[in-house]
Amino acid sequence: MNRSTFFRFAAPSIVIMTLLMLVPLLMAIWLGMHFMTYNNVRDPQFVGLRNYVDVLTDPRFWQSYRFTLVYMATVIPATIVVGFSIALLLDQVSGFARGVYLSIFLLPFIIVPIVGTLMYKQLFEPSGLFTWILRNFFHYKFRYNAFTVKALIVLYGIWYVSPFPMVTYFAGLQTLPQDLIEAASIDGASRWQKIRHIIIPHVSSLTIMILLISIMDAYRVFDSVFVLTELNPIYKADTIMTYTFQTAISVQRLGKANAMAVLTVVGVMIFLIPNLIQSYKQQIEER
C-alpha cells in the first residue's frame, strides 16, 4: 500500500483523533492558565501559571495522590496473584465446566463499573449480607469511616479487575509448550517446580503487559471511588481523578481542574514513556 492510499483510508480516524484528543490536550494546558468557572467559560481570564502552582501546593491534591498510589500498590499485586492462581486452577478443568466458570468469572469485569460498585456496596449497606455476616459471625460492627471506605475501594478493585489478568494468563497457559512440561516430568520435577521454572517465565511477557495496563487503569480509577465515597471528603479517600472532578464540578474551578488534569498526565508519563519507546522500537523492527 502506498502513502497516499494509506492516508485516504486512515484520514477519518486521524482527523477525529487529532481534533478530539490532541487538540483538547493542548487546550487543557492553555485552559489551565486561566481563571475559569461555569459563569465565564466563554471569557476566561488569563492568570499564567497560578493554577499550576495552586495545584502543586494543595495538600488535598497530594493526599489524593498518595491514596491513588496506595490503591495501585495494593490492588495490582493482589489481582495478579489472584488472576494467576485462578487461571492455573481453571486450566485444570475442561469442557462444559470450564466455559461456565469462565463466564461467571468474567461477569465483574464486563458489568458497568458504576453498577458493579453499586451492587458490591449493597452487600455492605446496614441491611447488607456482609454487614450481617460480619456482625453475627465475627462480632464486628461495620460502619462507613475513613478506613473501611478505603478498604472497600481496594476490595472492590480486586473483585472487579482480577478477571483481566485471569483471562490473560489463561490464554497464555493454552500456548504453553507441552514438550517442556513433559521433559520436566521425566526429570521428576514437582508441580510447584514446573510452575516456578517453566510457567512463570513463559508468561512473563504477559505479566509485563498486565502490569502496564493495570498501572494506567489504576492511576485513573474513578467510578468505584465516586460511588463508594459519594465524594464525601470526610473519608479522605479521594483519588487524583475524583479530586479533579470535584474541583471541576463542586468547587467549579474549571481552570484549576484543567491544570490538575495536565499535571496528572505529566505524572503518568514516568511509566508511559519507557513503554512507548519500547513499543516504537518493536514496531520499527516488525515492519
Binding site: L20, M21, V23, P24, L25, M27, A28, L31, M216, Y219, R220, I240, M241, T244, F245, A248, L254, A257, N258, A261, V262, T264, V265, V268, L272, N275
Partner: peptide, 10 residues
C-alpha cells in the same frame, strides 16, 4: 493510556 479527564474537561 492517558487519564481521560485531560481531554474531557476541554
Amino acid at each position: 493510556a492517558l487519564p481521560r479527564l485531560a481531554f474531557i474537561l476541554p
